[in-house]
Amino acid sequence: MLDYQELFEKIPDGITLHDAEDASVIDANEQFCEMLDYTRSELLELGFEDFILNEPPYTIERAEEYIQKAATDGPQTFEWRDETKAGDPIPVEVHLRQTNLDDRQCILAVVRNITDRKERERELKRKNERLEEFASVVSHDLRNPLNVAQGRLDLVREECDSDHLAAITRAHERMETLIEDLLTLAREGDTTLKLEEVTLADVIARCWQNVETAEATLHIDTTHTIQADHARLQQLLENLIRNAIEHGGADVTVRVSDLVDGFFFEDNGPGIPEETRERIFEAGYSTLNEGTGYGLQIANEIAVVYGWNITVSDADDGGARFEITGVTLNE
């Protein structure tokens, strides 16, 4: 038995050993044999070209190029398509490196079956396509009739005055808010983050200016500089601010301060009953008749994208306290 054989069989991935000059198969572990449904003796009688797909871009010529580069330029990592004994293609990730065995130059190939990964990628792509289609429908099919209704309302105001017009205006504003929230949720299908150094206090102050805060008061007690996507962080904070204003009233006091691995956001409003805390991040859940129920869900979804945790508890003065932890801080 070859000295490396025990190592071969302990590694969960498939492994093949090739001659560096002609790429012939010197050895293969049991995992690789099972992956392609060959016996070891069958594989050793084959050339490497017999178990690759050999369809563009996974051709014999390109495989030979990778093997040559592993011998001359160093380790190579790439995705590939092998072919089972039955002729079925199988997606794999291949790591090639040169090694010596009994003074013989060889190429060691570690081959991982990535079928499950590729299926997850396809499912994520399908999900994002559906979300993009949904966002397009929301943007076009809902905004257009809303714009018409708002235009007609302006014309009615020029012709008459009625207490009903204010109610119609509020209904339009709620529809606009709902559309914006739905679009934001749809965009959360894109988990790409553009991380940069962000001064938390500056972003909070800017968010406060962007939201209608009436007579509310803001106390900023944070000195943290964090790694964050500015746009996503702004969405998270603005939704927390709106939630405080909507539930705490026009004169609510909001305070933001530091935690060891993040920050907290609290108000002196009525707080959130313990029995409803598990539901506040659910889509559409709201304790207010005029609430859309999406604001806190959006905040939570953004935290999830970051890998942060957002929890709710009682503030010292009885209001709601949201703690955002797992944040990367800059020293």
Score class of each variant (00 low, 15 high):
residue 171 A to T: 14
residue 147 N to K: 15
residue 130 R to P: 04
residue 170 R to W: 02
residue 78 F to N: 00
residue 43 L to I: 11
residue 46 L to W: 01
residue 82 D to F: 12
residue 171 A to S: 11
residue 71 A to P: 01
residue 146 L to R: 03
residue 56 P to C: 08
residue 143 R to H: 14
residue 134 F to M: 09
residue 48 F to H: 06
residue 55 E to L: 08
residue 104 R to G: 03
residue 96 L to N: 03
residue 170 R to L: 01
residue 100 N to I: 15
residue 37 D to I: 13
residue 94 V to H: 09
residue 70 A to V: 05
residue 40 R to H: 14
residue 126 R to N: 14
residue 64 E to I: 06
residue 158 E to V: 12
residue 154 D to Q: 14
residue 53 L to C: 07
residue 44 L to F: 06
residue 77 T to V: 05
residue 36 L to C: 12
residue 41 S to M: 12
residue 95 H to L: 10
residue 141 D to V: 12
residue 170 R to T: 05
residue 147 N to R: 13
residue 120 R to F: 04
residue 115 T to M: 12
residue 152 R to Q: 10
residue 78 F to V: 00
residue 124 L to T: 09
residue 155 L to S: 11
residue 60 I to V: 15
residue 59 T to G: 01
residue 131 L to T: 02
residue 143 R to T: 13
residue 46 L to N: 03
residue 122 R to S: 13
residue 153 L to Y: 00
residue 81 R to W: 02
residue 105 Q to V: 05
residue 69 K to N: 07
residue 36 L to N: 10
residue 31 Q to Y: 03
residue 35 M to W: 04
residue 97 R to F: 09
residue 144 N to H: 14
residue 53 L to F: 10
residue 143 R to L: 11
residue 80 W to G: 05
residue 39 T to P: 09
residue 77 T to A: 09
residue 111 V to N: 02
residue 169 T to A: 11
residue 121 E to N: 00
residue 109 A to K: 00
residue 150 Q to V: 15
residue 50 D to E: 15
residue 123 E to I: 15
residue 160 C to G: 13
residue 84 T to Y: 12
residue 101 L to A: 07
residue 64 E to C: 07
residue 158 E to F: 11
residue 120 R to H: 05
residue 148 V to Q: 14
residue 77 T to C: 09
residue 123 E to G: 07
residue 89 P to R: 06
residue 86 A to R: 10
residue 152 R to C: 12
residue 64 E to S: 12
residue 121 E to Q: 07
residue 161 D to K: 12
residue 155 L to I: 10
residue 96 L to R: 05
residue 95 H to G: 00
residue 131 L to G: 06
residue 167 A to G: 08
residue 64 E to Q: 11
residue 142 L to N: 09
residue 43 L to H: 02
residue 161 D to N: 13
residue 112 R to V: 02
residue 54 N to P: 05
residue 147 N to V: 11
residue 118 K to P: 06
residue 37 D to L: 12
residue 122 R to V: 09
residue 105 Q to A: 14
residue 145 P to A: 03
residue 165 L to G: 06
residue 158 E to T: 14
